[in-house]
Write a protein that binds this DNA or RNA. Structure first.
Length: 696
DNA sequence: TTCTCGAGCAAGCAC
DNA sequence: TGCTCGAGAA
């Protein structure tokens, strides 16, 4: 049921002389995937096997084969991946006769969902100007609802708002009953089951009333559209092909969405690696990729196993780790690059020592001609690099950090964002609620009364806002009124398509005194707001600007500054999650002790251990030429704290004796364990003692 | 009703 | 450490 290709395939396949150069560089499996026609396609691509190249080549082939680029939908999980794919596909396609791959429709699942849900808002019974909640906003709403419900049970601690949102999100994304989710993933909250189901129902009702959607809703509503014959037909009519990257990370909502396209005669191509499934906490499950051939009948499967990224000694270690998974499909990566040295397994005293050693090694490599940005330090959590960051700053080594705390989680940034939202939707209750409470003398209760007057009956428009404001302001103390008036005026002045940058600037002026007064370090925080204004100046309009920020939050304030110069060089620090899909010449994996890899809290179930192992595997497979794994023998419970509470760690359980045998092991000089083992050099043979298996 | 202060406790990955 | 929540003062 696919749109017939205008060009007979033979024209493409039998004319190698006219084949574009990039096609000749593909190996037989990659080429088969790129040129596949006639059915759905699953590409099982191990780490470093040219997955992106293959997917981009497929886009280019489809375009050359006559599919208009704008009828191809490319779905990824991160904006970074989307951008990379589109750029590369464009480069390939424009080398052929037909150009135009820049018109490929691409983005993350959530951004595509946002576009489509907004287009069909009416059909879905949503306000056309609904706004988006990020995780932080969502937990605020959850908290609001929780307080209204009066969770006064002091008997046993009720889950915190963040946990509540996690449970909710996980349930929705998995599309499974709350009871099951609680039992499996949040057993300590099971006793609150009844309260939770009531709370979550109130939460969804509340979101509807407020005219807001959280990120999960985007998928839920998109799926609802795909399940409706008429809407699905309309949406799918725009596309011939849907390509999904990182298919091992889809959850069941996303599978349903993709299946909806298939039912409407779109061809589906899924690419992924079941051994890199690391988003179980988002209800992703590798079973979806394994069941792809069943769900998409007639699908062809092509497996890519030749690894172009790493040298064999490093792949041996990765293979050794992946082989520990008894349930996975055994895959052995084979290197296409010759030579290479063994991975280093380095025992260090503690994380401070680790930081020193890494800084030394990074600088040494730099001396030998390896750019800093060809080197990366990967960590289990954003937190793990704290000491290293200190050390890097001390030595003035530039670095860039991915993952971890986001700039837009900062309270004052959200304050200005709330004000920006009000220019698009003056009836945005949550935004008012947030902004008003910045004022001295205004807490939840007064803010509530002000909002009630503002919204009274029907939501205000920018034109009716001034008169509503005139009476609403009476609910506040006079000192607050004086500060709030300019803000209300600034919001009202943004009517009628004033440029986004101008609006943002006005609002910043109005919000500044509130921020300065509300936060102790207010003056410093104001600088961040300048950056935000700078961004807004480049946006099309405020509504899409604000939505984009939820869907693709910049990692740090630094990210928002001008793009770095080409000759700038910096070391990359990243969480493993954020590093997926990327590669570097040299990779340092830090804090590889048991309790961190796997994380203590993941140690419960076999599946969560398996996911931690896959995460470790992803970290190992990022390295092209050199890989070092660090195990601190002593770690502090509270890094940075004044006390000395610490524990003695042992190497990650994934570093089995078999895996360690594949590494070059070194115990650095002042490692207490090495010292007590005699003479400071590594013992030839170690006897590992552990009772952990009892608890598996 | 708001604000301040101290006690107690915690937990990561991200669209 | 740094957040959240509850108690008590302004």
């Amino acid at each position: 049921m696919f749109a017939p290709a205008p060009d007979p395939p033979s024209l493409l396949f039998d004319a190698p002389a006219e084949e574009p150069a990039w096609m000749a560089e593909l190996n037989p499996e990659q080429r088969a995937a790129a040129q596949h026609v006639g059915s759905h396609l699953l590409v099982l691509a191990g780490a470093g096997t040219g997955k992106t190249t293959t997917l981009c080549s497929r886009v280019a082939c489809l375009v050359e084969n006559g599919t208009p680029a704008e009828r191809i939908l490319l779905l990824t999980f991160t904006r970074r991946a989307a951008r990379e794919m589109l750029t590369r596909a464009q480069a390939l396609a424009s080398s052929g006769e037909r150009s135009g791959a820049q018109r490929v429709v691409g983005g993350t699942f959530h951004s595509a969902a946002h576009r489509i849900v907004r287009e069909h808002a009416g059909t879905l019974g949503l306000a056309p100007d609904f706004s988006l909640l990020d995780a932080g906003d969502a937990s605020d709403v959850m908290d609001l609802v929780r307080q209204e419900q009066g969770q006064a049970e002091h008997a046993k601690r009720f889950p915190r708002k963040g946990t509540l949102v996690d449970i909710y999100s996980r349930t929705v994304n998995a599309q499974r009953p709350l009871r099951d989710v609680l039992k499996e993933s949040f057993p300590w909250c099971e006793e609150h089951g009844d309260a939770l189901s009531g709370l979550f129902r109130a939460y969804t009702a509340r979101k509807r009333a407020l005219g807001v959607l959280d990120l999960d809703d985007l998928l839920v509503f998109w799926r609802a559209l795909m399940r409706d014959d008429e809407a699905a037909a309309r949406i799918a009519a725009g596309f011939d092909h849907v390509l999904v990257d990182e298919y091992q990370d889809v959850n069941s909502l996303q599978v349903d969405i993709v299946a909806g396209f298939a039912e409407q005669a779109c061809g589906v191509t899924a690419v992924g690696d079941d051994f890199q499934a690391i988003y179980g906490f988002r209800s992703a499950s590798a079973t979806h990729i394994l069941e792809f051939p069943k769900r998409f009948s007639g699908a062809a499967t092509i497996t890519l196993e030749r690894n172009y990224r790493s040298v064999q000694p490093l792949l041996d270690v990765a293979n050794g780790v992946s082989a520990q998974d008894t349930e996975g499909f055994p895959k052995a990566l084979r290197a296409q690059r010759a030579g290479g040295e063994r991975a280093a397994l380095v025992y260090v005293r503690d994380q401070a020592h680790e930081a020193t050693v890494i800084a030394d090694r990074v600088l040494a490599a730099r001396e030998d001609g390896m750019l800093l940005r060809e080197q990366a330090v990967l960590a289990r959590t954003g937190h793990d690099t704290d000491l290293l960051e200190l050390e890097l700053s001390r030595r003035r080594i530039p670095y860039k950090k991915y993952g971890g705390l986001k700039y837009f989680d900062a309270a004052h940034v959200k304050d200005l964002l709330a004000a920006l939202r009000l220019t698009d939707r003056p009836g945005d209750e949550l935004a008012w609620f947030r902004v008003l409470q910045l004022l001295d003398g205004v807490g939840p209760s007064r803010a509530r009364r002000v909002v009630d007057v503002l919204l009274g009956g029907d939501p205000p428009s920018l034109t009716t806002l001034p008169e509503r404001w005139a009476s609403a302001r009476e609910e506040m103390p006079t000192s607050a009124q004086e500060l709030a008036d300019p803000l209300a005026a600034a919001i009202g002045s943004c009517a009628d398509g004033a440029a986004a940058g101008v609006c943002a600037e006005r609002l910043r002026e109005a919000v500044a005194p509130l921020v300065r007064g509300h936060y102790i370090d207010g003056a410093v925080r104001l600088q961040d707001l300048d950056v935000l204004c700078g961004m807004a100046a480049e946006a099309r309009d405020l509504r899409s600007f604000v939505a984009e920020l939820v869907l693709d939050p910049p990692a740090s304030a630094g990210d928002l500054a001008q793009p770095p110069h080409l000759d700038d060089d910096w070391l990359v620090l990243s969480t493993v999650h954020s590093a997926k899909g990327l590669e570097w010449q040299s990779v340092h994996v830090i804090a590889a002790y048991d309790g961190n890899f796997p994380a203590d809290m993941a140690a419960g179930t076999r599946e969560s251990i398996a996911e931690e192992r896959r995460l470790f595997y992803v970290a190992l497979t990022r390295a092209r030429r050199s890989l070092a794994i660090y195990v601190p023998r002593r770690y502090y419970h509270r890094p940075g704290a004044r006390d000395d509470a610490h524990g003695y760690g042992k190497a990650s359980r994934f570093l089995t004796p078999e895996v360690q045998a594949l590494c070059a092991i070194s115990h650095l000089a002042d490692d207490p364990v090495a010292a007590s083992a005699g003479g400071g050099h590594a013992p030839a043979r170690r006897i590992e003692v552990s009772v952990d298996e009892l608890f598996a």
